[in-house]
Amino acid sequence: MRLKRIAWSAVTAALVAAAPLGGQAGPPALDSLRARTTAAAQRVTALAEQRERAAAWADEQYRAIAEARRRDPKALRPALRQAQTAADSLARLDRRLDEAVRAADAARQALAAGLQAELERTVAAAERARPPDKATLTARARALSDELQRTRRPVDLPPTDVPAVVVRPTDGPAEIELKADFLADRATQLRSAADVLAGEITRERRRAELQDEVERLVAQTRLFDETDVPPPSVELGAQGTERRPVDTPVPLAPDRGARAPPPAAAGAAPGGTPGGRPEPTDPVSAGDPRTASDRLTRLRADLLRQAAALERQSGEIRRLLRDQP
């Protein structure tokens, strides 16, 4: 299942990178970033397929052990050796796959940064341009923005669209069964998307808890003037996005230690002015550390509901097939 997800992500990333801006060519640096992203994604796909084949071969070797135990004890030792080789090979492939996934992620992030820069340049140029050029530049900015959004997707999910499948009177038994199978497959895919989200939700909750603890510790020590360092401004992204994984760091005073104020904070004193504070955060969203995980939880519940609906529909179609005269 994990392999399918990885391969799906890689294919999506490759498609995103391969079809930028509706076929428009970008600046050379951007093209190179796209090429790098595509290559990294293709490597992930290739390794995922290789690992899938290796896993199938390893399964055969494990089955051979059981077979040897039952029928030919002399063959047990070679079977064990072979199974060990298969397991080692799988472990090696896992490591390579892990590295490739990380490299693909880094390439995707670099592409996103490049797209963001290009988008800003294009928007600025569009603002200055005369009407005929303005339309072209605006269209290009829109395409860049779409590509950026696809590139920056926060969680790699398997496809989550719900198909509309209807059994027609002209459908034969084979076609009806095919449609039932198709719906059941889509339900499985939706459930695997929900699994991906479940892992993401756990990670997000843990991350929020850790950050919450840091904020409270710093707030407590500052309140009693024990370190006088302000709470971290962590919730609002540099451009106003909520809860980005990297964000404004907790300002720690560089020039003083315990009971000392923080010059590093926005609005704080540079040389040791007491009471320095960071820039205001967005407490409406920051007020609830579970905001992001809540959103993911709702999305996951939706996916599971859709999966259940598809399974019901698939079951009804199969019943229809059984009840056919």
Partner: peptide, 24 residues
């Protein structure tokens, strides 16, 4: 009159890590 220079790096994940060096 006061001056300060500061460099900090923060990772907001699990674990949360922030390191800092400064002079004033």
């Amino acid at each position: 009159g006061r001056w300060a220079l500061n460099a900090e790096w923060a990772l907001r994940g699990s674990p949360f890590v922030q390191v800092e060096l400064g002079a004033a």
